[in-house]
Amino acid sequence: MTRGDTLVVVAVVALALLSVPGAAAMLAPAGDAAILSSPAGSTTVELASPGTYVVEGHVGRVVFEVAGGEVIAAAADCPDHLCVRMGAAAPGRPIVCAPNGVSATRASGGEGLDAVSR
């Protein structure tokens, strides 16, 4: 590797580290709910209530399962099943099926207080 190559590696790693705060800021704080987004819109589901949610995407369906306080993509119509392999959605690590336009993000359930003002 040349010195320039080393600089490239350092620059990409630095970019990855610098993007961490931005990525964290993009996501709502993890809480007791998950936001399921699709081309048709989004819905918030409570993680305390087990259930199955079928979301229609651009190229097929994604089946999300809520159980044990977590949300996973249990099945998908796409051939690669990347979203199924991603496991449960976690803070900073949403489940994304980009070709389908479908995602699941951990979020606050919206039941609590956001702030107290006097």
Binding site: A16, L17, S19, V20, A23, L27, H58, V96, G101, S103
Partner: peptide, 20 residues
């Protein structure tokens, strides 16, 4: 753009790190 959300960009740190 496809998802109409910035959520996929939250994967940027992991993706950039693994791209090295």
């Amino acid at each position: 753009l496809l998802v109409s959300s910035s959520v996929p960009l939250a994967l940027l740190p992991v993706s950039l790190g693994l791209s090295v």
